[in-house]
Each structure stands twice: as structure tokens, then as C-alpha cells.
């Protein structure tokens, strides 16, 4: 018997100015599963994640989520004039997390950017900004994580930390969908899909 489904997309279609980007994409993510999506630039990977995350409404199809969803966008989305700690406070408040401080400390240590906790986002390096971008998606221990190229600006050490973390989350029954370009990520994935011509295929 397969594990319960945490995220399901059925027949998802989305066009931009009559240009179809997704053509009836269906997928499901199960408990304790790490799935990857690969595809050429402009294939629609980001659109797919945005539709799954609820940022974009699909033209057709539906998304069903069991539990809470965390989303890390491809472009770092932060408030330029807030520090990392202030981001945790703000987003923790939005999520209704009473223990946001404890979580913030944990992610600052785990992802290795404690020394930049009080640096304004606009003054932080690209890597630090991406770490914060990812940490905000992890806040509140979401059941499903949608990660759009989450480690493009990471150094090698943080890249390894990321995959350790992903494995740990999988062990705790979370489901992860990771958009990736890197071939050697494949060994870390349970499922790999390729998005091409608006259609998702299992690789």
C-alpha cells in the first residue's frame, strides 16, 4: 500500500497571453517523499510551483493539499530593510507561531547564517539571502515543501546541509518538491519528473 498523499495536482493548465505553459499536469506527492522537477529554461517549472503554492490560479485543474505548505520562491523574496531575525518575527507572526524565536535560532544555526542574523537583507550576500529565503519556507514545520531552485547561491557545504535536511524531513514524513538543474541531485530524489512542452513526465 502506498503512503498517503500530501499534495495532489490534477489536470493543471495555465497559459500566459494564450501561450500554454502547463497542459493538464497531474502529480501527487506522498508522505516521506522527495520529488524533483527538471526542465529547460522557460519550461514552466516555476509556474507549476506557483500554481501548487496558490500564488497563481490555474486556468483548469485543481490542487489538493493535506496539511500546511511551505514555499521557497526561485527569486529571493525578502524585505530589503529588515534583518533576518525581523523576517522570522514577521513571518512567524503571520503563521501564528508562538515559538518563532526558537525556530529562528534553529535555522540560523542549521543553515549557518547566525553571524548575519541582524544584517539587513539588502546588505546580506546572495548566499545569506537565499538561506533566509529557504528558512522562511521551513518556518512552522510545514507538511509539504515546494522549493524552487533552493540552493542556486549556496556554497558546497550549505548545499550538503540542505540535502541532509531534506533527508531528515523525509524521515519525519514530510513531502518535498524540488526544482533542480543539477544532474547529481538525482540520487537524492525518490521521484524525478521532467517538464517539457507543458507536460510532466516521469524520468
Amino acid at each position: 500500500m502506498s503512503a498517503p498523499v500530501l499534495l495532489e495536482g490534477r489536470g493543471l493548465a495555465r497559459s500566459f497571453r494564450r501561450r500554454p505553459v502547463l497542459r493538464g499536469v497531474s502529480l501527487s506527492l506522498h508522505v516521506g517523499e522527495i520529488a524533483g522537477v527538471v526542465g529547460e529554461n522557460g519550461a514552466g517549472k516555476t509556474t507549476l510551483l506557483e500554481v501548487l503554492a496558490g500564488r497563481l490560479g490555474p486556468d483548469a485543474g485543481e490542487v489538493r493539499v493535506a496539511g500546511r505548505l511551505g514555499y521557497s520562491p526561485q527569486q529571493v523574496e525578502l524585505f530589503d530593510t529588515l534583518t533576518a531575525r525581523e523576517h522570522f518575527r514577521l513571518f512567524g507572526g503571520a503563521l501564528g507561531l508562538a515559538g518563532w524565536r526558537t525556530e529562528a535560532e534553529r535555522w540560523l544555526d542549521r543553515l549557518g547564517f547566525r553571524q548575519h542574523a541582524d544584517t539587513l537583507a539588502r546588505e546580506a550576500s546572495g548566499g545569506t539571502r537565499q538561506k533566509l529565503n529557504l528558512a522562511l519556507a521551513l518556518l512552522g514545520d510545514p507538511d509539504v515543501l515546494l522549493l524552487d531552485e533552493p540552493y542556486a547561491a549556496f556554497d558546497w557545504e550549505t548545499y550538503l546541509v540542505f540535502w541532509d535536511l531534506a533527508a531528515e524531513l523525509r524521515g519525519r514524513g514530510k513531502a518535498l518538491l524540488v526544482v533542480s538543474h543539477l544532474v547529481h541531485d538525482r540520487s537524492k530524489l525518490d521521484v524525478l519528473w521532467s517538464l517539457s512542452g507543458g507536460v510532466l513526465r516521469c524520468v
Partner: peptide, 13 residues
């Protein structure tokens, strides 16, 4: 920072 604001809404604000 409209994108960050949008992200905040996704988190429940």
C-alpha cells in the same frame, strides 16, 4: 518589496 508582501499573504497574513 511587493513579492515579499505576497509571500506574507501566502503565510496567512
Amino acid at each position: 518589496d511587493a513579492a515579499a508582501t505576497r509571500r506574507l499573504v501566502l503565510c496567512g497574513r
